[in-house]
Each structure stands twice: as C-alpha cells, then as structure tokens.
Computed example of a mutant assay.
Amino acid sequence: MGDSRLTSFQKQVSDLLLRHRSFLDVTSKFQDSTSRVNRALMKAVTECGCIEVHAARQPVDYEASISELKDRFKTHLSGRLCDHCQDVVKAEMGKHLFYFTALCNLLELPLDEIVHQESDKLSTLGVFNLR
C-alpha cells in the first residue's frame, strides 16, 4: 500500500531531524510553520499586492444542488502569486510538510497511510464530506 515517494520522504525527514527531536520541539515548530505559511500569504496581499482578498458573506441557496453551490461559492481571492511570493509560500509549505512528517515519525504514523486513509474517506463520503 505504501507510496514510495512519501515513505522515502518520511525516512529522509527522520534522518535529517537532529536538533528538534523532542515531541515538544516538533509540535511547537509545526505550529510555528503554520504561522509562517499564513504570514507569507498575508505579505503577498499587504506588501506585494500580487493577490487581493475581497471577502463577503457566502450566501447559501438551499434549493441549489451541490455542484451549483460549488460554482457559486467564491474563494475571495483575485490575482495570482507572483514568482517571488510563490517561491516564499512554497518554501514555507515545504517546511510545514517537514514538521508534519516529523510529527508523524514521533508518533510512528506512516505518512502514506494517512494520505491514503484521507483519500479513501474523501472518495467514500464524496460530497457528504464537504469542508
């Protein structure tokens, strides 16, 4: 069942995580990485301006089908990340993935099984798993 790329990445993280092997260190670094991803996105809006946020209430038409609702709901984003902002966001997301995987390692949870389990749940529940 294992996805060799995910398994290989998980082993690589295990081999490279030296300084922050403590559960407390990893969980705090994981939380910090979440903040860094959010900060990189906010800077793309407030400093660079390559993306803009135009937020408003999402009206729900209870008569509409799920596919119609999907088309009606907005992301509230306009524009695209410029190359620089995209590089920064991708780097921060990579660090986030690193610490997520490190947390999986400490808890002895196979990353590929987590991904496959979530994918199976999404496939099984389909639209009933809306988030």
Rank of each mutant, 00 (worst) to 15 (best):
A40D: 03
D120F: 03
E63M: 09
L24E: 13
H20V: 02
R131Y: 06
A40R: 08
H20D: 11
H84V: 15
L130V: 12
S28F: 06
G49A: 02
S119V: 04
F23G: 04
Q58W: 05
A44I: 01
H54F: 05
G79M: 08
L16W: 07
F9C: 02
Y62Q: 14
R131E: 08
L125C: 11
D71K: 15
F23E: 10
D25V: 12
G79W: 06
D3V: 11
D71Q: 15
D3H: 13
T27P: 00
H84A: 15
T27D: 06
C50Y: 01
C50F: 01
L81M: 04
R80Q: 12
R131S: 13
L97R: 08
Q31H: 08
D112Q: 08
L41V: 08
A56C: 08
L24M: 07
S35G: 15
H84M: 15
E92W: 00
T75W: 11
N105K: 04
L77G: 06
L107N: 03
V53N: 02
S123N: 09
D3E: 12
L107V: 01
R36K: 11
T46Q: 08
R19H: 08
T124W: 09
D15E: 09
G2F: 14
I114W: 03
S4P: 14
L77I: 07
K121P: 00
C48L: 03
R72V: 02
L6Y: 05
L24W: 11
D87C: 02
L111I: 10
L107P: 00
K70G: 07
G94S: 10
P110R: 14
S78K: 15
Y99M: 13
G79R: 13
R21M: 05
R21N: 10
F100I: 05
